[in-house]
């Protein structure tokens, strides 16, 4: 398996960096002066020494992004446990916890997404029809604050224990009750919160590791997704091929 991977890298320049891709690949234009990016793809000088270290070597390095920007430690733990139920570790590979999903959500809430900064948040607010989409006045930070608190309250009422302390089955029951609106909340919709949690779990499992999720590209590896490659011209006409994944970081070296 490992050998196959190496072999592949040799044969397929598109799985190495942008600069190498331009240097090695058949991406030639027959002497045509093509505008835009192509001139810029070729660095002014050879920058081998500036290339970031290969990603594999970095897997064990300390990750300074595993800290919190928004959640309290308690909120973080609930999110970690809940997202692991949504996307659990199994024979295929790691679950949400080991992929860093809770850190991903924490970091996202700290930015424009958490504040719904690029969404229409003007009054008046009316309860709409389902077909009209989200009509609440709360932003995602507020929804997470309320949703997590209510999960904790519901767990205490139902089982006399905090969500994190529950068995996996009981955690699933709580999540299911949220998903199916069996929990009646006043300020937010329980199912709306669950949807948000599920959606951001998948985002955290499969985003570029740049965002602190999909740790070590393990989410991608699990489904044989090659991440960010320069080109697929060599394989587009062929049957399935597994290509070792590459993240956006590999693209930085060639034009920094």
């Amino acid at each position: 398996m490992a050998d196959e991977t190496k072999q592949h890298e040799k044969e397929n320049p598109e799985s190495s960096s942008r600069r190498k891709f331009i240097k090695n690949s058949g991406f030639v234009l027959g002497g045509l002066a093509v505008g835009g990016i192509l001139g810029n793809l070729l660095p002014a000088k050879d920058q081998d020494s500036n290339d970031p270290p290969p990603q594999e070597e970095n897997e064990t390095a300390e990750s300074f992004t595993m800290a919190l920007m928004y959640f309290t430690p308690e909120q973080y733990k609930i999110v970690e446990a809940a997202t692991e139920r949504i996307f659990p570790a199994d024979d295929n590979g790691p679950g949400a916890k080991d992929l860093g999903v809770a850190f991903f959500i924490d970091h996202q809430l700290n930015g424009s997404w958490g504040l719904n900064a690029r969404e229409y948040m003007q009054a008046p607010f009316f309860k709409g029809e389902n077909v009209q989409g989200y009509q609440g006045r709360l932003n995602r930070r507020e929804i997470f604050d309320i949703g997590l608190r209510e999960m904790q309250n519901y767990s205490m009422t139902k089982y006399n224990k905090g969500f994190v302390e529950l068995s996996e089955e009981d955690q699933d029951t709580i999540l299911k009750d949220f998903e199916e609106d069996n929990v009646k909340l006043t300020t937010i919709s329980a199912s709306g919160f669950f949807k948000l949690l599920r959606g951001s779990t998948l985002e955290g499992a499969y985003c570029d590791p740049l965002y602190s999720g999909n740790r070590n590209m393990a989410g991608w590896k699990m489904r044989k997704y090659p991440g960010s490659q320069m080109a697929y011209t060599e394989i587009i006409e062929k049957g399935f091929e597994e290509i070792p994944p590459q993240s956006l970081r590999s693209h930085l070296g060639s034009h920094s």
């Binding site: 990016i37 719904n116 969404e119 229409y120 985002e203 499969y206 985003c207 740049l210 960010s228 693209h251």
Partner: peptide
């Protein structure tokens, strides 16, 4: 806009889910 803007474009979260290239709905929808 120019082609050089897209060196970091293979980013599903930023472009496909956070709508990097789309109109800012907070101003107009």
């Amino acid at each position: 806009r120019k082609t050089e803007d897209y060196f970091m474009v293979h980013d599903e979260l930023r472009y496909a889910l956070r709508y990097e290239m789309m109109q800012d709905l907070s101003k107009e929808t």
